[in-house]
Amino acid sequence: MSCRSVLLSMALLSAVITGLSSLVHAADLNDPAPIGKHAGTFMVRLRAIGVLPENLSSATSLGGSVHASNQVAPEVDLSYFLTDHLALELIAASTRHEVSASATVLGHVDVGSTYVLPPTLTLQYHFMPHGRFSPYVGAGLTVAWFYDTSPSRPTVAKVGFETTVGPTVQIGADYNLTGHWFLNVDAKQMFLNTRARINGGAIRARTSLDPTVVGVGIGYRF
């Protein structure tokens, strides 16, 4: 990620946090008492996330390695508390990534761009659910669908990526700011491998994307 991209990402995260803090401050007037987490309730969170593919163990039939770009995007999740400590969380987000191959026999190749939709379901354990500060850990499964893929013409006329499934681990914390409102920080490590077919299969590539997803946002518990 370039210096400019990092600065833009930081500015976006700062704007989101500022806006969410203003909403919570306004809600504080009518809903001052913290309520914690309890069985049978739902929590909705909105986060700003950074998606950082690790691009490990990649290769192409022309040699070299594959690289997918970092991205910043919004994320929405819904949690249901089975008990005070245990919750199921469904995470939804979509990001667009630029894909390229470097050090091939053709040199650096811009493959194109693709959107990925990786719904993720995790089972979480929440420590100290009745306190203001409540960290949690989680583990689950991610399914990644690639769609609206655009090849980088004229070198690449056609490209497609396989749907992939892999495990995900998670760590995060909620802070009960006031009433039903929570501040949230979260990090997930997804283990995802995918294969690409370029120009009808004339060129093949594989990569362990293994994205790290870090986010910050706000939650509301019903």
Score class of each variant (00 low, 15 high):
Thr122Glu: 09
Leu177Cys: 11
His180Gly: 06
Tyr125Ile: 02
Val214Arg: 13
Arg204Gly: 09
Lys188Cys: 08
Thr95Glu: 15
Ala93Asp: 15
Val109Ser: 12
Ser9Gly: 13
Pro211Glu: 09
Leu123Ala: 12
Ala173Cys: 00
Gln124Ile: 03
Ala101Asn: 04
Ser94Arg: 12
Leu13Thr: 15
Asn199Asp: 13
Gln124Asp: 11
Phe222Leu: 12
Gly140Pro: 01
Leu192Gly: 07
Lys158Met: 11
Pro154Asp: 05
Gly200Glu: 10
Gly201Thr: 13
His130Asp: 07
Arg195Cys: 10
Glu162Gln: 09
Phe81Val: 15
Glu89Trp: 08
Trp145Gln: 14
Ser152Ala: 15
Asp84Thr: 13
Leu88Phe: 03
Ala139Thr: 01
Ser134Cys: 04
Ile218Tyr: 10
Ile35Asn: 12
Leu13Asn: 13
Gly201Met: 09
His67Asn: 04
Ala144Ser: 14
Phe161Thr: 00
Arg221Glu: 07
Val16Asp: 03
Arg47Trp: 06
His25Leu: 15
Asp77Val: 04
His126Leu: 03
Thr207Pro: 11
Phe42Glu: 03
Ser65Thr: 12
Ala59Asn: 07
His85Glu: 10
Leu82Gln: 11
Gly107Lys: 06
Ser100Thr: 14
Thr194Glu: 02
Asp174Leu: 11
Lys158Ser: 09
Ala68Ser: 10
Gly179Asn: 11
Gly40Asn: 06
Val137Ser: 02
Gly112Asp: 04
Tyr115Asp: 01
Ser58Cys: 12
Asp186Ile: 02
Arg4Asn: 13
His130Tyr: 04
His108Cys: 06
Leu12Thr: 14
Phe222Glu: 13
His130Arg: 06
Trp145Ala: 15
His38Thr: 15
Ala68Val: 10
Leu23Lys: 14
Gly50Leu: 11
Pro129Ser: 05
Glu98Gly: 14
Pro151Asn: 07
Val111Arg: 02
Val156Pro: 10
Arg96Asn: 15
Gly201Gln: 09
Met128Cys: 02
Val16Ser: 06
Leu121Pro: 03
Arg206Trp: 00
Thr83Pro: 00
Ala103His: 14
Leu82Gly: 05
Thr164His: 00
Asp110Met: 04
Val116Phe: 08
Ile91Asn: 09
Thr120Gly: 08
Gly217Met: 08
Arg195Gly: 12
Glu98Trp: 02
Tyr175Met: 03
Gly36Lys: 05
Cys3Val: 15
Val111Ser: 08
Val16Tyr: 10
Phe182Pro: 02
Gly201Tyr: 05
Leu62Gln: 07
Asp148Gln: 12
Leu23Thr: 01
Leu86His: 02
Gly217Pro: 09
Thr120His: 02
Leu20Met: 12
Gln170Ser: 05
Ser208Pro: 12
Arg47Pro: 14
Ala39Glu: 07
Leu62Met: 08
Leu209Phe: 10
Met1Leu: 12
Val111Tyr: 07
Thr178His: 04
Phe127His: 10
Ala68Trp: 09
Val216Ala: 07
Pro53Glu: 09
Val213Gln: 01
Ile35His: 12
Asp210Cys: 11
Thr18Ser: 07
Asp110Arg: 08
Ala173Lys: 03
Val137Tyr: 08
Thr60Gln: 00
Thr114Arg: 01
Leu7Ala: 15
Leu46Phe: 12
Gly166Asn: 07
Asp174Cys: 08
Thr207Phe: 09
Thr178Ala: 01
Val99Thr: 03
Gln189Lys: 14
Ala68Thr: 11
His126Tyr: 05
Asn30Glu: 09
Glu89Leu: 11
Arg47Asn: 14
Val44Asp: 03
